[in-house]
Every structure is written in C-alpha cells, then in structure tokens.
Nucleic acid binder design. Structure first.
Lengths: 173, 173
DNA sequence: CGCGCGATTGAGTGAGCTCAAGCCTCGTGG
DNA sequence: CCACGAGGCTTGAGCTCACTCAATCGCGCG
C-alpha cells in the first residue's frame, strides 16, 4: 500500500509503503494527511473508527502496540529521509531494492543466496518514492543489471544475487 | 534540538528538529537510531528510563499523550519527505523559513504583519536539513533577500515580510 | 493486426555541486 | 586600541548528475 502526498502543481512523493499485516489509518484525528492507494491486490480489515478508539481506551495493551508500530514507522520515515536528501540516484535505487528484498523477498529456489521478489510498483511510482524521474530509475536499473548486481525479468521480477554487494552500492545505511 | 543521521562516508542528514517543550528520546527500545544535538542553549528534564516506562504502564493517559506526539512527528517527517524529494532549492529554503516562522516566530515590533526569528542553525546545518550544500543555501537566501521576501541582519536575524508570499514561493504544502 | 501502456534509450540542457577566493564579524592578545 | 586570526558566510567559475523532451521498443489485449 502506497502512502503518497502531492503538491498543488502535481508533483508527488510517496512517503511510505506498508506491507501486510500493518495497521493503516490514524486514530484520534479526523484527517489523514496522505492519500492511500493499493499497489497490488490487497485484503483489508476495516474497523469502525469510534469503536476502535473505544477499544483503545479500554485496553491499554492495544494502544501500546499501536505506539510501537508508530515508532517503527517514524524510524522508517527518518531513515528514508537520509536516502531522499543525501543519496545519489544509484544509491537510491539500490536502497529501494534492498527495502523490498527485506519486506517481500524470498530466497531463490535455484540459488540459495539469491533473493527474489516482484516489484509491486511501476517505474513512475518508484520514481515518486525515490524523488527521481522515471527515466533515471530505468537507467539505474539497467546499470545495476549490467553490473551483475541484480537480474530483472519481464520488467518486474527481480533477483538480487548478492545482498552485501547491493548494500555496498546503496551507500550503507 | 537537531536529530541527525549520518552515512558511513560522512554525508549527513538532519531528520528532525524539536522545539520546547517536546519529549526527546524513545521508550521501549535500547537504541535511538539518531544523534541528538542541541542547536541552541537548552534546558533539559531527564527521566530515568525504567521509571518512565513503569509510569507509562500504570498511567495509560501518559502513553496516550506520547502516542499523539509520535503521530505528529510522523506527520512532520512525511511532510518533510515531500520537501526533500520533490522541491527545488529555492522552495526548500522557503519551506525551512516557514517552518521556523511557525515554531519560533514572533510578530515584529515594528510591522505587525511581519514575523521575526533568530536562525538556530548555521548554514551547514540548514544544508543538512534540506539536503543541499551550504553554498546553495546561501545563494537562495540572498536571492530571497533580493526578491524582498525576507530580510536578514547579521546572518541570523530573519524577518519574513509576507508569509503568504513566502508560502507561494515554497511550492504550497 | 493495431492500439495503448509501460519501459528503455538517446541527446541536450540546467539546477545544484565542487573547488576556490574573498569578505565580515567577533574574540583575543600584543 | 588596534592587529590579527578563525569561523562562518558570500560570491564566482566551471562541471556533472539528473532532468527534459522525444523517439523507439515490447508486450498484452481487444
């Protein structure tokens, strides 16, 4: 699920990605300051807002869990700020691929050290996530492919051959 | 107070600014993944971690407040991600000045519509906050000055003459 | 087959970076 | 009281990385 914000002139930035089974939405406030859009097919559990907030009040345990998730999201956001503000195009793309490998990557059936996953976003979305243009994303992807760091089939099926190599390219954390 | 993250090769990004009287630190986890540095003279209240976490467990009220502050920080972080990823140098600097005007600005004694404040950060820090170089920050500042949008005295005493004008320059939200 | 969407690739441009010089302000010491 | 030096800021010149504009390709689908 993509969380995006957009400027009045149409420029757009994806400010977060959420993967199952996280909580989406915001308690204790009317407006969510982002647009939420599914990137792939999703299954969603909907809770009535009033009821949910009641449950939170009665069961501190719930609120605690929610706080912890929010703290994780805050860390993620701040980590990504470094990527947006200080990394080169190549490092940004590598960081993005690592993020995906981390969340939805599975070991390749063929080679045990390789990690595979499907890109849930098209080039334009990746660009909005990385603060780049789609052309630059495309160029960096092919560059990584020619360097032998990754493999892409049918534009969306990615294999990372060497996570450490890609981490090095991504400019560390 | 500056919250900064840095890359292994020395590149640096300020991922948040906190103003009095906010809570700094992180509960329920050993490591804070950022460096914290005061930008101006500060007065800090320190709480023993264990005690604080106990209090949180016993008084859901506290945890609730903390959750709300964390949600605000998350919103701020995401808003800033748009600035980092999608705005031009000029817009970034304008956005930064608006942020300060919002948090530490006071109406000017002379002109009621103007807002004044002292820059708590030097150029290099502003650059790290905006994902720019200090030279670019400097150039944009002078450009804004020559456009008549702001006034700077002694390199750190800023007057914003017209908030709406600066907001327009900042590229909206 | 032809259309449309998405991705790739190329050529040229420009915003912001790098490197370097010069300036201002303030604190220090002769 | 002034000279000096250091830290921070500004300004300039040239360059580079990523953007813009545009053509082409590839694939899936009607």
């Amino acid at each position: 699920v993509k969380l995006t914000k957009l400027l009045s002139d149409g420029r757009q930035q994806i400010v977060g990605l959420q993967f199952a089974p996280e909580f989406i939405g915001k308690v204790f406030s009317e407006k969510v300051p982002v647009s939420v859009e599914a990137a792939t097919d999703v299954e969603i559990c909907v809770f009535p807002k009033a009821e949910l907030e009641n449950m939170l009040k009665q069961q501190p345990e719930f609120e605690h869990r929610l706080l912890e998730q929010t703290l994780v999201q805050l860390d993620d956001a701040r980590t990504w700020m470094v990527t947006l503000g200080r990394k080169t195009a190549q490092e940004k793309v590598a960081s993005f691929l690592l993020l995906l490998a981390d969340h939805i990557g599975k070991p390749s059936p063929a080679a045990p050290t390789s990690i595979e996953f499907m890109l849930p976003l098209k080039r334009a979305d990746i660009a909005d996530f990385l603060g780049l243009t789609l052309e630059t994303v495309s160029r960096q992807m092919t560059k990584l492919r020619k360097m032998g760091a990754i493999d892409i089939r049918k534009n969306l099926d990615v294999t990372v051959h060497d996570i450490d190599r890609l981490t090095a390219i991504s400019g560390g954390d």
